[in-house]
Design a protein around this nucleic acid. Structure first.
Length: 117
DNA sequence: ATTTTGACGACGT
DNA sequence: GACGTCGCCAAAA
């Protein structure tokens, strides 16, 4: 375990914080972690997420366009889309519909805790 | 060790 | 607004 993994760990942590029926983007997570332009690293972390002990809901993480770009990395099938649809998310042609409505930002999680403020 | 690529995104043309 | 290029950083060839 290295401190460098901290960045990846954060990515996994945020990914697990994604609420049911919501999705987020790599860039959103990256920005939240302070690596605004390292969205690729977030995606790469997702690839490595299979190495993590805890399963990461990577299917809830899509690119900014709402495209299921990483669906190939699951079972090589439409599993990712199935999971999303299972959560009430409408996905057509590997693209999430009503994205702006279900888009979840890591900051929302923080706001949720601070809703008492 | 160098080069290429990769689940992205922002900016430039 | 579609297409092109660069940036980011890490891992695999």
């Amino acid at each position: 375990m290295k401190e460098s993994d901290n960045f990846f760990e954060k990515v996994y942590a945020v990914a697990r914080l994604i609420p049911f029926g919501r999705v987020t983007s790599y860039g959103a997570i990256a920005t939240y972690l302070g690596a605004a332009r390292s969205a690729r690293m977030v995606g790469w972390a997702m690839n490595n997420s299979h190495n993590q002990k805890e399963e990461v809901p990577a299917h809830r993480v899509v690119n900014r366009k709402g495209l299921l770009t990483g669906k190939h990395h699951f079972n090589g099938t439409n599993l990712m889309q199935q999971l999303l649809e299972n959560e009430g998310i409408v996905v057509i042609e590997n693209q999430i519909q009503n994205l702006e409505d279900i888009f979840w930002n890591p900051k929302d999680a923080f706001a949720s805790e601070k809703k008492d403020l």
